[in-house]
Design a protein around this nucleic acid. Structure first.
Lengths: 144, 144
DNA sequence: GGCTTAATGTAATAATGTTGCATTTAAAAT
DNA sequence: ATTTTAAATGCAACATTATTACATTAAGCC
């Protein structure tokens, strides 16, 4: 049901306050299937009263990202809600280059392979970022 | 030796002119082991005469990236020279989170694995971006 | 050397992101 | 319920990154 409720609960349990701006940002992100920039989020907010301050939105997004409630998608510069469970693994994305829709995934195999390769280059891997670009089913027109 | 010569040759062979600004940007990138932003490149340029215009630098970087002579590193927002041969495969990076040094690599295995996973999500993968973060040998103090 | 077109310079502006300080408010304590 | 207070937000100013339109310059051709 209300996955938003879960997120709010999570915030509270970590000692963060549940505020109207945080709820609003959460709702906007939850409704979007594509990454949104801070300013896009600002425009998407309910027009009742004043819009949220952009600074506030940035701070909320930083908080959400630090808690893994949301992620920043580097290839598009936007933010998305996290759709995976707390279960470990680095969160990765595949994005449709045509419609911009996005799916999140994780893979222990990829992490291990990347760690091995980079270890051979002298690095100790800690975090794995990957964003795959391609075409989604819809944008291939069902064909191919 | 002068790998810069090779890059200039490559530009000429593709019908692009070899100009002073392009040589300068190439040299600055070549000398850096870390990603540089357009404005950092501007500051790094020889102080003889006027500095390069930032717009020009952006245009040169866009050209280099489109030809795979350089790459944009998303996790840091900077640009690096490409160190791999034209041999195919998507170019990936491992970056030291402490000193910022960077190594480029490619892996057919990773591409295949990512394509398989994202295909199961309904996507046809075309481009694979990955940036691994960790600690380089130096920054681990040789230990561990 | 002159010609032609690609490349660069200039100016203005948009988009994104950050900092310091004043004000407000969620939630705990009374 | 009221008070308290630390956390969160608002506000103003500003830094960085990036793009566009149009004028000027120069690389590489004859």
């Amino acid at each position: 049901m209300s996955q938003i409720g879960d997120s709010l609960q999570f915030l509270r349990s970590r000692g963060y306050k549940v505020t109207a701006p945080r709820k609003q940002v959460l709702e906007v992100l939850r409704r979007s299937s594509k990454p949104l920039s801070a300013y896009q989020i600002q425009k998407s907010l309910p027009i009742k009263g004043k819009p949220l301050n952009a600074v506030t939105i940035y701070r909320i997004l930083n908080l959400f990202c630090s808690l893994n409630l949301a992620h920043r998608v580097l290839s598009s510069g936007g933010f998305v809600i996290c759709t995976l469970s707390e279960g470990e693994g680095c969160h990765r994305f595949v994005v449709c280059r045509h419609c911009g829709s996005l799916q999140e995934f994780a893979s222990e195999t990829l992490c291990q392979e990347e760690s091995q390769i980079t270890q051979d280059l002298g690095f100790q891997a800690e975090y794995h970022l990957s964003e795959v670009s391609g075409l989604c089913l819809k944008c291939r027109g069902g064909q191919r």
